[in-house]
Write a protein that binds this DNA or RNA. Structure first.
Lengths: 207, 207
DNA sequence: ATTTCAATACCCAGTACAGGGTATTTTTTT
DNA sequence: AAAAAAATACCCTGTACTGGGTATTGAAAT
């Protein structure tokens, strides 16, 4: 029997997943949290085998939470959830000792597969995330060029293309071109996702 | 002698503050961190009296960090730093047991005052943050109407107005109207800030 | 020495949203 | 029952950005 806790800051995602997993006989969702602090609280109070946790969460993020869990409850298996295929985040999560990772848009079947695999002592890594890239640190890293990275940082600060162009003393068209290129190579959809990606990336600006 | 650690996301702020405090004889900055995890690490390794910490930080935020510090090192004094006068955050920080809070644009004099006050066992709260408002919980809270709040959540999930209209079975124009009203009453500028606000607010969706 | 890549910059068409105004209906308050 | 607040929906104009395409320049790689 898998006794699962879901930690994810979007409650609707939690609700949806709970609903899907309710039909599974060998899985009980014993609790859910919207942040790392609540997750750790649940671990103190209930008997849990597997934790499915978002990487980016308020209060204590998935990486820090995983580290703390592996220290205090080493028998608990941890599977990371990520929105994007972010090498750095996944790498840090692996470093924190997680037992698997999934993209948030994974099929239910894949989720079940992952849960059962880690519950029985294995590891499960979403096939669409390429581990080889993770090993060759330098390779997966330099996706963005210097200008792109610089612009990404400004985007994360809430600047518009107009403002970024002024700051960098270039034409707006150039900034827009860089945005488009980033959206293309990161496989994002629109300005919103780029902003979200930029905000997410701040995790790694200091690494 | 005050043995201080500064924890703050923006390194430039840390550098600036370090420089200012270097001239103070009774204060030694024994370390600095850009995230909560590193902050806790420093506490393990060095002898520290006072921690000056940002509330919003990667990995482990200031509130969670404060709680953990007060558990493991109850003698260490914690002062919170906030960019804005954010009632909820300050309230949670107080709840976590912090000994004071400052706005980031405080004068050096105020910072020194705060450091010395808490180091000698007192509490120091930035006078421009009104505690009275903090008590009357209901007061500052119900700014957004139900529909607005619902739409804000969908915005935080990255939905466009078109998608939100579909989900809620209303016209796009209605969603756009709610967006405009929110931007107006929250004094924001544009879709980006609304998205950032929506993402920020997730701190409180679960409170 | 030549190819390749990054950075720069422009064009056009189309979408998403802001910022303004207004109007109708339903619900809540009084 | 009347007044106020919330939710709904539409108008128009302007801005920001996407999704295409293309071209020039300098630096790095081969």
């Amino acid at each position: 029997m898998i006794r699962l806790v879901i930690a994810e800051d979007h409650q609707s995602f939690v609700d949806g997943l709970r609903l899907l997993l309710d039909n599974e006989e060998n899985i009980t969702v014993v609790g859910s949290a919207n942040n790392g602090e609540d997750l750790l609280d649940i671990l103190e109070k209930k008997s849990v085998n597997v934790v499915l946790t978002d990487i980016k969460m308020p209060k204590i993020d998935g990486i820090a939470a995983c580290r703390l869990i592996k220290k205090s409850h080493p028998q608990v298996k941890v599977i990371a959830l990520t929105m994007f295929d972010q090498d750095d985040a996944v790498k840090q999560m692996l470093d924190a000792g997680c037992d698997g990772y999934l993209l948030k848009n994974s099929s239910l079947k894949l989720v079940l597969n992952a849960l059962e695999t880690v519950a029985s002592g294995g590891q499960f890594f979403d096939p669409t995330i390429c581990i080889d890239d993770l090993e060759t640190e330098s390779h997966g890293k330099q996706i963005l060029t210097n200008s792109e990275f610089e612009i990404l940082k400004l985007i994360s600060l809430g600047k518009t293309s107009r403002e970024i162009a002024d700051i960098r003393s270039t034409a707006i068209s150039t900034v827009e071109r860089h945005r488009k290129n980033m959206i293309g190579k990161l496989k994002l959809k629109g300005a919103n996702e780029l902003l979200r990606y930029a905000l997410d990336k701040k995790y790694n600006f200091d690494v």
